[in-house]
Design a protein around this nucleic acid. Structure first.
Lengths: 268, 268
DNA sequence: CGACATTTTGACGCTGGTCAATATTGGTGG
DNA sequence: CCACCAATATTGACCAGCGTCAAAATGTCG
């Protein structure tokens, strides 16, 4: 379950710059060793808030241990889940914009984060060229994963969304290239549903359907994925009864998607 | 139509740092005047590509004039529209992550962008503390608007999505606080649909419905918005015939949204 | 052990996707 | 200048996926 934080359990107080790089999964910056700055950690118990929408921005956080959910709340009080940050993920980047956090982040389990104070961001950027690259890349990665999610939600049906969510979550829980196959979800069906643009009932049904199809096993929040790769690429599960020669036929390109035809615009 | 680029029409070759700040709508950085660096512009004809998914990242762009669409393309060749950048918007930030662009950006009209070369980002960041703040904030803003869109798509029905899209577009076309009321859309119904997670038919129907409701007037791509504020807050248009005592009853909190009840986690 | 949150499963209906036909626009060439 | 064609937009009819409502089962915490 826990990956490489055996030591950060005991001396979990400060992290060096190169530790932060490893955590983020980014190549270690040149000269990182020559910087004596270290970063404080902060520990959170399950249910505690790390950031609150509207509150002043003081720091960025990098998850070292545990699971979070981030969400926004609209006027009416409904909340929409934006993501489930875990080890190596950046939290709080939306606060840079107006120096005010634009979302909530709460710990779903006991958790531990590296604190990168606002001041450090400007300070270190000046003294160490590559530090700002780290931050840029980390924030940019947020953008990319966000877009991937929108593509997922905008394109696929309910079962496929859930399937990819699970495959993705398994990837992120395991170490690079080795997805976890057995784990327990830190979030509720409702939170998953909010994240994927579905209702909790639909999520529950999708879980059951995927289990019936033999792709996984599910008991409440305990999961065992039998075929992660299949989950990752699944498009439809319909298989209405005896799947027969139900080879893929016309089911493609739904919603507002556009095919290559109008790939207008010659290069340059 | 054009806002404040009367001069950038003639000498549209370079922009100073403080011009860039104004364009982005961010407070002018201290010391911006003391920097002699200027930024090249690049002109594009309608249909030309500015960035391509997978191509090496060389620069960030800030739209000075004209309209773009950005989109990703999945394996099967379908494209999903991510946004419609226009004056003052940042383009290309998703390339910082892996030094490779993660999306396409094509000009929908003739356009003009400020080019911020990759090198400049690191270079200026060192010599001018506040420059990196500009970039941080611009990228962070992308995140925030992205989340707003997801909230929109995840929560509202078709008509409301289209209504808010129009209100938002009008806001961005006009100057701060003064939304444009009469303009012509640079994109197709299909592109709008892709952006909002709807089909082109649904978008078309929504346009008609909003027009029937007297909120706007529409002729192909020519629009005249009669009540921008109403469009901005519209939740439902149903009004199924004689609306009678059809006071709002159960229509709230749809999809995976969660109400305040579980605002778990005491502060700190 | 009892109150409550979460999950599962079923039945039903609406929104919006699909298919199809027609209208309008814009561009191209005779 | 006009005929012709492709791209875009509009509108209608049909229906399926998923949201809604409801009830029961299972798990959790005090």
């Amino acid at each position: 379950m826990s990956t490489a934080k055996a030591k950060s359990h005991v001396d979990a107080h400060r992290s060096t710059l190169s530790e932060v790089c490893r955590l983020l999964g980014l190549p270690e910056v040149a000269g990182a060793r020559h910087v004596d700055t270290t970063f404080l950690h902060r520990h959170l118990k399950a249910g505690q808030r790390l950031t609150s929408q509207g509150e002043p921005f003081e720091a960025l956080y990098i998850v070292a241990e545990g699971y979070f959910k981030t969400f926004v709340a609209d006027e009416t009080g409904n909340q929409l889940v934006l993501g489930f940050p875990l080890q190596g993920d950046l939290v709080g980047a939306d606060g840079l914009c107006n120096h005010r956090h634009a979302s909530y982040a709460v710990a779903l389990t006991d958790a531990d984060v590296v604190v990168v104070p606002f001041r450090c961001i400007a300070h270190l950027g000046r003294s160490l060229d590559d530090f700002e690259q780290i931050i840029y890349r980390a924030i940019s990665r947020e953008l990319v994963t966000d877009h991937a999610l929108r593509s997922l939600v905008g394109t696929l049906g309910a079962e496929a969304r859930v399937a990819r969510f699970l495959a993705n979550f398994a990837d992120r829980c395991g170490r690079p290239g080795l997805p976890a196959t057995r784990f327990t979800l830190p979030m509720t069906r409702q939170e998953i549903g909010s994240y994927l643009g579905l209702t909790l009932e639909t999520v529950s049904r999708a879980f059951s359907a995927l289990a019936d199809a033999g792709l996984m096993q599910v008991a409440q929040r305990e999961l065992e994925l039998h075929d992660v790769d299949q989950l990752r690429v699944l498009q439809k599960l319909h298989a209405t009864a005896t799947a027969r020669g139900a080879s893929r036929r016309g089911d493609r390109a739904k919603r507002g998607n556009v095919t290559w035809v109008d790939m207008l615009g010659a290069n340059v």
